[in-house]
Design a binder for these strands. Structure first.
Lengths: 228, 228
DNA sequence: CTAGACCGGATTGCATCCAATCACAAGAGG
DNA sequence: CCTCTTGTGATTGGATGCAATCCGGTCTAG
């Protein structure tokens, strides 16, 4: 039975990669906020923008639909996915249960240097006033706790949940900063401390509580999910 | 901002549904064991088999790739996904954490009639000698605990994990039955009892332990994942 | 006899073309 | 004035055809 060992995608560019190129570009655009949730996506526009025909564009849309970033309706079109408060809470509750597990897998693999880097990120997050920078640092802080263990399924899943909520996290961040919310930073420092001691149980508890508290906070701001 | 309210897929057949038709058919075929993991999938063959051109077939392959049922390699082809023991354990560990949550959401929605049906399924499972029937009953037993709550994300995720491990569950079932393993049924009855009392904490505990014990059992049979 | 290069068939990837469908606006009827 | 209908333009969906790539066997050289 074949099935090539190299799970690595053969060529990152060239022939047989147009769909992936478009998908990567569009994903980045959505995560960066260039496209807002609910916004219509036209195949022709993307095709011209990324120099491809509509066929690979449609492939890319299918991929992003599977990731939950795009919503397709047959014979009608594609939209940047919009999620409700209920769905967002659901995703956070899933994260509460699985991110601690992923952290546990990574804990023994994190070097002292990695931990120092985490501490640095937490401090930078506390220092910055820029929303986009905070978002990038927060993402780097959490996801860099996760990318050492070879957990393909769990890693992809967590990344997907982060991506699907990215736009709304941007919105929350603005609100939280306006409210002068500080406990987030406290929790980050507690998490770094637990990781430094390689205390898996405590790290799980802190991380779970961190996500949980964020969820409870965002439930207080349903206006972020308003339909305009 | 548009984005039609009807999230329901417009037409299950007719124009604009060829990709979905092929995807559904191929998914069913894979889950039923018609295609074995590692088996090559040729676009032309599927196109002829399902009366479509290769374009919707490629769309279907992308969808199933996203579900983890198919593995695509650029310029090379498609294979029915094969998972390793490590990946399977990972999926079971994810299930240990999220299926109890999903059960909790559904618990208040289950009627007394639903609970009676669960008990019936558990007994039928205990009675049958046929592997395929056991698989179908087990799937019905667990998934029917989950499909009442409108948890789109969590429900889809759990279903995906069941699908990705379906072939290997079939193989385990054969081994377990050969070994005369009976504790599975005990756990099912405990679960029904906890559900009947609407005892969420106990139900979570039992379900988590059920999945966990299955995972530990399957780790004792790595031969199921042999590459042939 | 083995290892490496090479070539032909098979298969996938993409662009173009045409058909099917839908959204929207204008008009007829109540 | 509102509602339903109808037609048109825009957009998506699918089939075909060609180019790019890969796999397998064969030949050659060492």
């Amino acid at each position: 039975m074949p099935l090539p060992a190299r799970a690595v995608r053969a060529a990152p560019d060239g022939h047989g990669a147009a769909g992936l190129r478009v998908a990567d570009a569009l994903r980045t655009a959505i995560l960066d906020g260039e496209f807002a949730p609910g916004e219509r996506i036209r195949q022709e526009v993307l095709a011209r923008r990324y120099g491809a025909s509509r066929v690979p564009v449609r492939e890319a849309l299918r991929m992003l639909e599977a990731e939950g970033l795009v919503t397709l309706v047959a014979n009608t079109g594609a939209w940047v996915s919009r999620i409700s408060l209920a769905e967002c809470e659901e995703m956070y509750q899933i994260r509460e249960r699985i991110e601690p597990l992923l952290l546990r897998f990574n804990l023994p693999l994190l070097s002292d240097g990695d931990v120092a880097e985490l501490a640095r990120l937490a401090e930078a997050m506390e220092a910055t006033d820029d929303v986009e920078e905070f978002l990038a640092l927060d993402r780097a802080f959490h996801l860099s706790c996760y990318d050492l263990a070879p957990t393909s399924v769990l890693g992809d899943l967590v990344l997907q949940l982060w991506n699907r909520t990215q736009h709304y996290r941007r919105a929350f961040t603005r609100v939280f900063r306006a409210e002068g919310e500080r406990s987030v930073h406290h929790e980050h420092h507690l998490l770094v401390a637990a990781i430094r001691r390689r205390d898996a149980d405590e790290a799980e508890r802190v991380l779970s509580g961190h996500i949980r508290r964020t969820r409870l906070e965002l439930a207080r701001h349903p206006e972020v999910f308003a339909d305009d």
